[in-house]
């Protein structure tokens, strides 16, 4: 995983330079490209395990470049864009990007996301796509029901019993929304009475443990005014 090659694509040379310095200090090998066309060319020479892609660029924009790359490679692509609308994010992800980070980004968060994507990429390479019996895998989350163990991008994460049960319940029904009462009934096995706050606090704790940025969760999401769910990835 060390010395992984990362391609930074951004028409703003200062930003590309800053990301280069940032990632190099974390021990990555960085190549730079200043538009989509250069990115495609750089990819040919090989040695690249992840791409950071800006959207608004001359010649070939980031979304088109992503689409092109996806025709032949499943290398992780993180889109870096000043466009922060939900619709922009959805568009970027639907083009085949693995993650979407808005500018201006938090450098630490960017590094964390890069590492997360790289680990997941490597792990997938190790274990293929198959999860063993009594394991639930969603994105970088791997829940081992026998060992009562959760790993995020391969790193073990410690959960309390209730947190584990909540996550297990939600991951078993990924994509479905459950109210706090339902979750409480299933996890606490008691009649729910004014439990919203209790469940919400637990959810928040879990998010802090499994999400890179708990404010913008990738996995565990609050459906405001309705309930909670684990995103089906």
């Amino acid at each position: 995983m060390d010395k992984a090659g990362i391609l930074v694509v951004d028409d703003d040379r200062e930003i590309a330079g800053a990301i280069e310095k940032l990632l190099e200090s974390e021990g990555f090998q960085v190549q730079k490209a200043y538009d989509g066309k250069e990115a495609l060319e750089a990819l040919v020479s090989g040695g690249i395990q992840l791409i950071l892609m800006d959207v608004m660029m001359p010649r070939l924009d980031g979304l088109s470049a992503t689409l092109k790359i996806r025709e032949s490679r499943n290398i992780p692509i993180i889109i870096l864009s000043a466009k922060s609308e939900d619709s922009d994010k959805i568009l970027g992800l639907s083009m085949g990007a693995d993650d979407y980070v808005t500018k201006p980004f938090n450098p630490d968060e960017l590094v964390a996301r890069v590492k997360s994507q790289l680990r997941r990429y490597m792990l997938l390479g190790d274990m293929g796509n198959g999860s063993k019996a009594n394991q639930i895998a969603i994105g970088g989350l791997l829940l081992d029901l026998d060992a009562k163990q959760l790993t995020v991008d391969g790193e073990p994460v410690h959960l309390t019993a209730k947190e584990f049960q909540i996550l297990e319940f939600l991951m078993k029904h990924a994509g479905m929304v459950f109210s706090a009462e339902k979750i409480y009934e299933r996890v606490w096995k008691e009649k729910p009475y004014s439990v919203e706050n209790t469940v919400m606090v637990h959810i928040r704790r879990i998010r802090e443990k499994i999400e890179i940025n708990p404010k913008e969760p990738n996995y565990l999401k609050v459906v405001w005014g309705i309930g909670y769910k684990i995103e089906k990835i």
């Binding site: 930003i15 800053a18 990301i19 980004f105 938090n106």
Partner: peptide
Amino acid sequence: TPLTSMVSYVDL
């Protein structure tokens, strides 16, 4: 865009 540079370089 410039803010991104500022945040990044201040961090560096």
